[in-house]
Design a protein around this nucleic acid. Structure first.
Length: 436
RNA sequence: CGGGGCGUAGCUCAGCCUGGUAGAGCGCCAGCUUUGGGAGCUGGAUGCCGGAGGUUCGAAUCCUCUCGCCCCGACCA
């Protein structure tokens, strides 16, 4: 992409409404623009990042055996009366009437809809297990939306729902998601810590939150240092029993602000980490809470109907964009981990119109594109300072800087966004480094 | 939902107290000079001063109502 044609409205100054760093940087980097309180437009740069995150989530969900579906954003109120939540949910649920005066709602979550899909289409225990997920927009009419997309009213969420014949199998489904989450967040360059959580209004007997560590996080977090050093599981076979893997995480001390245990922390001594965190995922095992009232049953091996056991598994996808920025930025702007970066490489032409610079940049740009790298080429007729500032602001991991001084010696400059290290080398060598 | 704050140019904000008919910096457009970390000069465009009502000869400014946004608290991916 040529920057001269890319829709990238960056801002030099911080809009006054933005209080936290991720919100400021998302506005300044031209990723989002506010539409209304808690509701945002995603501009091209933001959309690219969001799509990269979606793809990682999707790959890891698929690997864990979940299957992608798309459910409606607008749901029938009657379905929510069946589960008993139509009246319970309160004003957070956006309620709508259609032209026939039927009660509709913009879905804040999808347990009812997915259970309805299940009961209408799955009749035998032989069809179990099933785990269905979607990556779709939710609306919760929060009392107080804030911090940009961190706590929006409309937000993109991955929500998965598992269906199993009994509790033991259902636990396995839970463990599959637990492991998939560890891998998902690690691929985004995040330290995400699973913590025992309160199931809250979703209900159930087991629940974990996944908290990303960031200095600006909303909740205080206490944990054993060992958790921070523990690598995400590699080469997982999701068909095998994952209990020991899950236990190896849950047996290490970690607690949020409300639940922390001072006595326990005393025994950790120097290994106690006090940090701040952002909740990016939440998984629930809730058994028959929805399947029972909604009649989601299959015929069991003995010919008798069995109510299925369920769990639900959420990832705040749009929130992750903000969380990644909270975890990775400096005074110049965003520092994207390579996997989610909107462009992996930036080519900076310091003197557009100079034949040698133009030729070198065109060549680099063509070769990077041909190699399949996502590349942004700053071909704007701007001053060097503007270009450096924008590249850093939008957080491009690798930057190849081409200027008349260097090119006269046959050299370009390769800069890493992380740490800012620069080295001078010839264009071919820079390509090799970037493509490695 | 309680408490507080703010709405003036694309952005940051001044002007409001003490009414007299719209400002600055940045950005944008044109030209010239510049050109390795957010340039300089010259010229130019841009505002229903959030909206409605009221007071007044006259309202961005005073009064009333209203809408929107932000912050703090209780709740949440």
């Amino acid at each position: 992409m040529r920057l001269s044609r890319f829709f990238l409205p960056t801002l030099k100054e911080t809009p006054s409404e933005a209080q936290i760093v991720s919100h400021r940087l998302m506005l300044r980097a031209g990723m989002i623009r506010q539409h209304a309180a808690g509701i945002y437009n995603w501009l091209p740069l933001g959309t690219k990042v969001l799509q990269n995150i979606i793809e990682i989530v999707r790959q890891e969900q698929n690997a864990a055996g979940a299957q992608e579906i798309i459910m409606p954003t607008i749901q029938s109120g009657d379905l929510w009366r069946e589960s008993g939540r139509y009246d319970d949910y309160g004003p957070e649920m956006l309620r709508i009437k259609d032209r026939h005066e039927r009660d509709m709602l913009y879905g804040p979550t999808h347990e009812e809809v997915v259970t309805d899909i299940f009961r209408n289409n799955i009749k035998s225990y032989r069809d179990l297990p099933k785990n269905l997920y979607q990556i779709h927009w939710k609306f919760r009419d929060e009392v107080r939306p804030r911090f940009g997309v961190m706590r929006g009213r409309e937000f993109l969420m991955k929500d998965a729902y598992s269906f199993d014949l009994d509790v033991a199998k259902s636990r396995h489904a839970y463990n599959q998601m637990f492991v998939a989450y560890l891998r998902t967040f690690a691929r985004m360059g995040l330290k995400a810590i699973p913590m025992k959580a309160d199931p809250g209004p979703i209900g159930g007997d087991m629940s974990h939150e996944f908290i990303v560590l960031a200095d600006t996080g909303e909740s205080a977090v206490f944990c054993d240092k060992a958790l921070l050093e523990k690598p995400a599981p590699q080469d997982v076979n999701y068909e095998t029993d994952l209990q020991s893997v899950v236990d190896s995480w849950t047996s290490i001390y970690a607690a949020t602000d409300e639940k922390h245990d001072a006595a326990m922390e005393g025994t950790l001594g120097a290994n106690l980490v006090k940090a701040r965190g952002i909740e990016v995922g939440h998984i629930f095992h809730f058994g028959v809470k929805y399947s029972e009232p909604m009649g989601a049953k299959v015929t069991g091996p003995d010919g008798n109907p069995v109510t299925v056991f369920m769990g639900s598994y959420g990832i705040g996808v749009s929130r992750l964009v903000a969380a990644i920025i909270e975890a990775g930025h400096d005074e110049n702007g965003i520092i994207w981990p390579e996997e989610v970066a909107p462009f992996k490489v930036g080519v900076v032409n310091l003197k557009v119109g100079d034949a040698a610079c133009d030729a070198a940049c065109d060549d680099l740009y063509a070769k990077l594109k041909k190699a399949g790298k996502e590349v942004i080429y700053d071909d704007r007729d701007e001053r060097a300072g503007v270009k450096f500032a924008d590249m850093d602001l939008i957080g491009i991991p690798w930057q190849i800087i081409v200027g008349p001084k260097g090119i006269a010696k046959g050299m370009v400059e390769l800069k890493r966004r992380v740490g800012g290290a620069k080295e001078e080398l010839n264009a071919e060598a820079a390509l090799i480094r970037v493509l490695a």
